[in-house]
Design a protein around this nucleic acid. Structure first.
Length: 580
RNA sequence: GCGCCCGUGGCUCAAUUGGAUAGAGCACCUGACUUCGGAUCAGGAUGUUGCAGGUUCGAGUCCUGCCGGGCGCGCCA
C-alpha cells in the first residue's frame, strides 16, 4: 500500500468524491446539485459506517423514485477498495459498509501523516482573527473569557488547516472614557493603591468620576474638554493615557500568559486614529454619508438597517468610523481573504452596519462576525457599578486551587512542584473546556460549579484519558522492551476496536466542520466522544495481557488516540500532561 | 413598536445545517474480576423538542401565528 503522508485524504471526502462520481455518470443531467452530493456518518452501525442521502434529494429534481436512483447508483459505482458492500434502506438511504482492512490502513496513514491528516483547505489564504479586545483601565472579568478562548481556538483551528493566520487584539484604548478617567485620576487617585493594584485603582477612579459626571454637568464638561485635549495631542494627557495603556497591557499580559494566549499584533483603536477623517471623507465623496442633525450619517434603508453615525455632531469620531478604518487598514496591509470578529452578541447590529458599509466602499473580503451570548450571573447581569464583577484572575486562581486539592488527594506522592503544574493545566483546561464545549450562541449563566467541572463532559476527563494512555505506553515499554507497536498491523478482534478506529478517522472531519461553522465546540464534542470510546476500550479490553500481535495492535490504537487527543486539545488551547 | 437570537428529561448542554429509534453530562439507584491509573467503566430510570398550524418521502432543524426569555435599535464601545 502506498500511504505517504501527502496522499492522505479524509475518509468522508474520499467516499463523497467516489459516490459523487457514480452519481455523475448515472445522472449527468442533474447538473449543479451534483456538487453537493456527499456521504455522512451513520447514527447506528446497523446502517453501515457512512450513508448517502442524496438519492432522495435528487428524486424531486429528476422526477424519479429515490430507490430507483439508489439502485442505479450502486450498479454504476466502480469498486472502491474501502467499501465492503452497500445497501438500500428505507425511502432511499444508501448505506456504505467499510472494509476492516481499509479502515486500519487509512488509520495508519492518518497517524503517519503530518498534521494527522488535516487537509490544507486554507493554503494560500489569509485570515485575520480579531478577539479578546478588552478595554484599557478596566480589569478583565469573566465576560472576557469567551471571546479570548473562542477566538484563540478559531485561530489555532485555522492555522492547523493551513491558513496564514493573524491574530489581533483590538484593545479599547481610544474611547470617550478617557476624559472621565483623566478627571478621576487627577482628583481621586490613591497613589498607594495605584502601586499595589493599578488597574483596580484606575477602575475605581473611573467609576467615581463617571458617577459624578452623571449628576454634575460642569464635571461632565471638564471630562469632555480633557478628552478633546487628549485627542488633539496635549502632552500631559497623552502621557497619562500612555501610562494607562501600559499598565493595562501589563496586567492583560499576565492573564494571557496563564491562558496560553498570545497575539501576532496588538493594535488598539488608537492605532487607527489618524485614518478616521479619511474614511469619513471617502464616505462623503461617494455620497454614502450625509449630514443629519449635525452628525455625519450613513443611511442604509436599502440594507434594511438603521442609520449609522460615523462622525458625531461635535466633530469627534466614534466606534463605527474606527472599525471602518480598521477594516481598510487591515485589507491594505495583510490582503486577507477573511476577517473574523469574535465579540458578544450586543455588537451584531454594529458589525452588520460596518460590513455593509465596507462593501459599499469596495471591500470584497469575507467579513464574519462570530458572536456569543452574554455571561450572566444567577442573580442577573453583572456590571462594574453593581460591584458584582468576578475578575478573571480570581476565576483562574479558584480553578487552580480546586484542581490542586484533587491532585493532592489522588496523587499524594507527587512532588509539590509537579502537583502545582498539574493543577494549573487541569484547572485552566477545565475553564477553557467549559466555554468551548458548548454552542457559543447561548446566554451563559455563570456558576462556579459549571465553570470548574472536573468530571463527566469536562476538560479534565480528556486530560485524564490522555494521561492513562501515557501510562499504558510506559508499562508496555517496560514489559516489552525494544518492541515498536507501530510496526504491527492494526487488527479488530472486538467491536470496540473498530468503533474507536473509525472515530479516530473522523478527526479531520470534526476540525474542518468546526472551521466552516466557526464553532470550536464541534472539536470539543468530537474529542469527548472519542475519549468516551477510548475509555470503554480501555476499561473492557486487556492490552498488556492480550496475545502477541493483538497486544501491539491495541497499544498502537492507544498511541494514535493519544496523538489525536493531544492535537485536538491543542486546537482548543488546552494543555495535556503525561501524569495528572 | 421594529430587528437579531434562544426555548430539547429535575438541572446544564449535543444533535454533522432537512435524514432513520432525539444523544451526553450532572444529580439519583445498582454493580465492576488476583489486568494496564476508580478524575474511570457497565447497567437502570427520566422526553408531546414552549404552544398551534403549514411545507414533504422525512421537521428539534424550514415557513406563519402566538407564549416566555435575552440582546439591540443616531451622537458609548
Amino acid at each position: 500500500m502506498i500511504n505517504t503522508s501527502s496522499s492522505f485524504v479524509p475518509v468522508d471526502r474520499e467516499l463523497s468524491a467516489w459516490i459523487r462520481l457514480a452519481f455523475e455518470s448515472a445522472y449527468p443531467e442533474a447538473g449543479s446539485v451534483l456538487a453537493r452530493i456527499s456521504t455522512v456518518p451513520t447514527m447506528s452501525p446497523e446502517f453501515g459506517d457512512y450513508q448517502c442521502n442524496d438519492a432522495m434529494n435528487l428524486a424531486r429534481a429528476l422526477k424519479i423514485k429515490p430507490r430507483v436512483i439508489a439502485e442505479r447508483l450502486i450498479a454504476v459505482a466502480g469498486p472502491h477498495p474501502g467499501v465492503a458492500r452497500m445497501e438500500i434502506a428505507g425511502p432511499g438511504f444508501v448505506n456504505v459498509f467499510l472494509e476492516d482492512s481499509w479502515i486500519s490502513d487509512r488509520l495508519a496513514a492518518m497517524a503517519g501523516a503530518g498534521g494527522l491528516g488535516l487537509p490544507s483547505d486554507g493554503a494560500g489564504k489569509t485570515v485575520i482573527v480579531d478577539y479578546s479586545s478588552p478595554n484599557v483601565a478596566k480589569p478583565m472579568h469573566i465576560g472576557h473569557i469567551r471571546s479570548t478562548v473562542i477566538g484563540n481556538s478559531l485561530y489555532r483551528i485555522h492555522s492547523a488547516l493551513g491558513y496564514r493566520t493573524v491574530s489581533d487584539n483590538h484593545i479599547g484604548d481610544w474611547g470617550t472614557q478617557f476624559g472621565i478617567i483623566i478627571m478621576g485620576y487627577r482628583h481621586f487617585l490613591d497613589q498607594k493603591a495605584l502601586e499595589t493594584s493599578p488597574i483596580e485603582e484606575l477602575e475605581r477612579v473611573y467609576v467615581k468620576s463617571y458617577e459624578k459626571s452623571r449628576e454634575d454637568a460642569d464635571w461632565l464638561n471638564e471630562c469632555r474638554r480633557e478628552l478633546v485635549k487628549l485627542q488633539s495631542g496635549d502632552e500631559q494627557n497623552v502621557a497619562l493615557w500612555k501610562d494607562f495603556v501600559a499598565l493595562s497591557l501589563r496586567e492583560f499580559e499576565g492573564i494571557y500568559r496563564r491562558l496560553g494566549v498570545s497575539f501576532d499584533i496588538v493594535r488598539g483603536e488608537s492605532y487607527y486614529r489618524d485614518k478616521l477623517a479619511g474614511v469619513v471623507r471617502q464616505l462623503e465623496e461617494k455620497e454614502l454619508a450625509r449630514e443629519s442633525e449635525g452628525a455625519m450619517v450613513v443611511f442604509m434603508e436599502e440594507d434594511k438597517l438603521p442609520p449609522c453615525i460615523v462622525r458625531k455632531s461635535d466633530g469627534g469620531y466614534n466606534y463605527a468610523s474606527s472599525d471602518l478604518a480598521t477594516v481598510a487598514s487591515r485589507v491594505d496591509e495583510f490582503g486577507p481573504d477573511r476577517i473574523i470578529y469574535v465579540t458578544d452578541e450586543r455588537q451584531q447590529l454594529h458589525f452588520r452596519q460596518i460590513f455593509a458599509i465596507s462593501r459599499k466602499l469596495g471591500c470584497s473580503v469575507s467579513l464574519e462576525h462570530v458572536w456569543f451570548g452574554l455571561m450572566r450571573l444567577p442573580e442577573g447581569t453583572f456590571s462594574t457599578r453593581e460591584g458584582n464583577v468576578i475578575k478573571l484572575e480570581r476565576l483562574l486562581d479558584e480553578a487552580e486551587s480546586r484542581a490542586l486539592a484533587i491532585v493532592t488527594a489522588s496523587s499524594p506522592d507527587m512532588p509539590e512542584e509537579r502537583r502545582r503544574e498539574v493543577a494549573r493545566v487541569v484547572g485552566i483546561g477545565a475553564i477553557k473546556y467549559a466555554d468551548l464545549s458548548q454552542n457559543p450562541q447561548t446566554t451563559v449563566t455563570f456558576t462556579w460549579e459549571k465553570a470548574l467541572a472536573l468530571d463527566g463532559n469536562s476538560g479534565p476527563y480528556l486530560q485524564y484519558a490522555y494521561a492513562r494512555i501515557a501510562s499504558v505506553r510506559d508499562k508496555f515499554a517496560e514489559r516489552f522492551p525494544g518492541i515498536d507497536p507501530d510496526g504491527f498491523p492494526i487488527v479488530f478482534t472486538q467491536q470496540i476496536e473498530r468503533t474507536l478506529a473509525l472515530k479516530l478517522l473522523k478527526f479531520p472531519e470534526a476540525v474542518t466542520r468546526a472551521a466552516q461553522a466557526c464553532k470550536p465546540s464541534t472539536v470539543a464534542d468530537y474529542l469527548y466522544d472519542l475519549a468516551q470510546s477510548y475509555s470503554t476500550f480501555y476499561q473492557n479490553v486487556p492490552f498488556l495481557k492480550a496475545e502477541d500481535g493483538v497486544r501491539e495492535s491495541r497499544v498502537r490504537l492507544c498511541g494514535i488516540t493519544a496523538k489525536v487527543l493531544k492535537s485536538g486539545l491543542d486546537l482548543l488551547g488546552i494543555e495535556t500532561q503525561e501524569r495528572i
